[in-house]
């Protein structure tokens, strides 16, 4: 024991109580339940685990979840950056209104978003018909899944990039211009590199969220085996057949992917913080 450890008391009250409760509640609601996935996966014989995880149908679902999340995140990078830019830098009527509605995908229940997109782009409604005349089919296709995920991921990009654009110092731009740079050069060489870490953080967030997304996707996806089944749906259908082991196995891999994303995100955020210090 440290000879003076008696002196190491906390000045403000309530540390023990608040810390104790935090750890207890975190364990009860999050850590213990999450560990069941690991525990029940360990309980499965390796061959059965591999069979469950590497069946062609499951593999196709992982591929679909990752690729559609990826394309949606890329689209969100553009749309989100554009929106953050115009909402922050330009003054136009309705700007505050639009700004508030950036959060709609957060606020709107995913199931509602799901049935909206499914109906909007079904062959029965006008937008769907117009798009199919141009050869674009969204209902029951991976493209439709991407559309739903674009909606879900959009606010993450905007809300991450927006504050950084707002804090851009006008002097930097003025300095660049006084040195003879054109507006486009200033943007490309000065502003964009400065905003890039934030953009990457936002895109990673959108991507991570999209991998596990369920409610907004299943309606427009049509859930055709090998074609439009996403990974969370595979878990769902295994559960419906009371195949708990299979569900755990599929979930275990998905969880692993999410944790890897979390680590990547951590790295990106640390880089972002460094960039803006």
């Amino acid at each position: 024991m440290h000879p003076f450890s008696k002196r190491q008391r906390r000045i403000l009250p309530g540390f023990g109580l608040s810390m104790g409760y935090t750890v207890f509640y975190l364990s009860a609601i999050v850590l213990v339940p999450l560990s069941t996935i690991v525990i029940s996966t360990i309980g499965i014989e390796p061959e059965r685990f591999l069979a469950a995880v590497s069946s062609p149908r499951v593999l196709a679902s992982y591929r679909l979840s990752l690729s559609s999340a990826f394309f949606a995140a890329i689209f969100d990078a553009g749309a989100g950056f554009l929106t953050a830019w115009t909402l922050t830098r330009y003054r136009f009527p309705g700007r505050r209104f639009l700004d508030a509605f950036v959060d709609l995908p957060f606020a709107l229940p995913t199931a509602v978003a799901g049935i909206c997109f499914a109906t909007l782009y079904s062959p029965a409604t006008l937008p769907g018909q117009v798009l199919s005349r141009f050869g674009i089919e969204l209902a029951n296709t991976p493209a439709g899944i991407v559309v739903a995920l674009i909606f879900i991921g959009f606010p993450f990009v905007v809300r991450t990039v927006q504050p950084v654009i707002a804090e851009l110092e006008t002097e930097i731009e003025e300095a660049a211009q006084s040195l003879g740079a054109s507006r486009w050069q200033t943007f490309r060489k000065i502003l964009f590199p400065h905003l890039f870490p934030a953009l990457l953080t936002g895109v990673t967030l959108a991507f991570a969220r999209s991998i596990g997304e369920y409610g907004s996707v299943i309606f427009i996806a049509g859930n055709l085996p090998f074609k439009t089944e996403i990974a969370p749906l595979m878990i769902m259908s295994k559960l419906d057949q009371f195949d708990y082991d299979g569900a755990s196995a599929v979930a275990f891999v998905l969880l692993l992917i999410s944790f890897i994303m979390l680590l990547v995100l951590n790295g990106v955020q640390r880089w972002q913080q460094k960039a803006y210090r």
């Binding site: 999450l34 997304e213 369920y214 769902m236 559960l239 708990y244 999410s258």
Partner: peptide
């Protein structure tokens, strides 16, 4: 601790349901 608080955001909602079925089903 702070990153652990964020865990539920990283988990697919379907998995969030599944873990309670596995725990309390």
């Amino acid at each position: 601790l702070v990153s652990l608080l964020d865990l539920p955001f990283a988990v697919s909602p379907v998995i969030a349901g599944l873990i309670f079925v596995l725990l309390l089903g």
